[in-house]
């Protein structure tokens, strides 16, 4: 699945990213390339910059320095020489190709399940209602929510909300998906359903960057695990290498702190 060399490894290029929040530095000159079809899991202690790195990938959090390119196309750069309207237009167009899934779902409570998936297709991708609804139903059945299409989001469980959020992204035919701790706001019994959906996507060669605490899940879907701490990438590599034989003391410490049993892949 993963290609470590050649042109393919440059599908998403994040170069020299720096981000400082008032007082704290979240990213210190971080670069990360992701290949088409690759699944990258970002792990690290809270506040290590992994969520910030994910959010710079679609420029939802603009970096202070560095640039992000998708398929060679500029997502965002700092300093940006383009005019404000050009920046905005370019960003919106490229964001339509990048799907993002949030920790707290962010489903839209004023729209029912079907409309949640239909709305961005019509507004952003300019699809007809007919086409958008067809696509939405396909996406909903992929996440197992086709029978909930006329339900309101408030009546869904957390796991269902997150699957709806994933369907909303899938219907846009994304080239890349960003997932920010997609299961950490869920009750334990609802986690596996969401992870199963993500696993299927990984098997279908969806390019994904996932911030996660579920090391078992990470080891089973990731082509590469990236460990961050203090705004730096400390170590990265295939899951078995990273999780079984960490090279750095800091990764060892991080893994030791989490219960060893957590590394065993979960069965669905």
């Amino acid at each position: 699945m993963a290609m470590d060399t050649g042109k393919m490894s440059n599908f998403l290029e994040m170069t020299g990213l720096v981000k400082t929040f008032t007082g704290a530095t979240a990213l210190q000159d971080v670069s990360l390339n992701v290949a088409k079809g690759e699944v990258v899991c970002l792990i690290g202690p809270s506040g290590c910059g992994k969520s910030t790195l994910l959010r710079t990938a679609n420029w939802l959090t603009p970096a202070d320095a560095g640039e992000v390119r998708l398929d060679g196309e500029l997502v965002g750069t700092m300093p940006d020489q383009r005019s404000a309207s050009k920046q905005a237009k370019g960003l919106n167009a490229v964001r339509a190709r990048i799907g993002m899934v949030f920790q707290n779902f962010n489903v839209w409570p004023h729209l029912n399940v079907l409309e949640n998936v239909v709305c961005p297709q019509m507004v952003v991708a300019k699809r007809s209602r007919n086409e958008a609804e067809k696509k939405a139903l396909v996406a909903l059945s992929e996440v197992g929510l086709e029978d909930k299409k006329s339900e309101w989001p408030d009546n869904l469980s957390g796991g269902q909300k997150q699957r709806l959020a994933i369907a909303r992204v899938l219907a846009m035919d994304p080239d890349l998906m960003l997932l920010d701790e997609p299961t950490s706001a869920l009750d334990p019994e609802l986690v596996s359903g969401v992870l199963a959906v993500l696993k299927r996507l990984a098997e279908k060669n969806m390019t994904m960057i996932i911030v996660t605490h579920e090391l078992g899940f990470a080891s089973s879907v990731a082509d590469r695990i990236v460990f961050l701490e203090g705004g730096h990438i400390i170590e990265q590599g295939p899951p078995d290498v990273i999780l079984q034989s960490p090279a750095t003391e800091r990764l060892k410490l991080f893994l030791d702190k989490l219960n060893i049993t957590a590394f065993q892949p979960k069965s669905d």
């Binding site: 679609n58 939802l60 905005a88 919106n92 167009a93 490229v94 964001r95 339509a96 190709r97 990048i98 799907g99 993002m100 949030f102 707290n104 962010n106 839209w108 961005p120 507004v123 952003v124 959020a165 909303r168 992204v169 846009m172």
Partner: peptide, 13 residues
């Protein structure tokens, strides 16, 4: 998060 998730799909402000 509502505004953010909408912007993330590519909607303009």
């Amino acid at each position: 998060g509502q505004l953010e998730s909408a912007r993330a799909t590519g909607m303009s402000d």
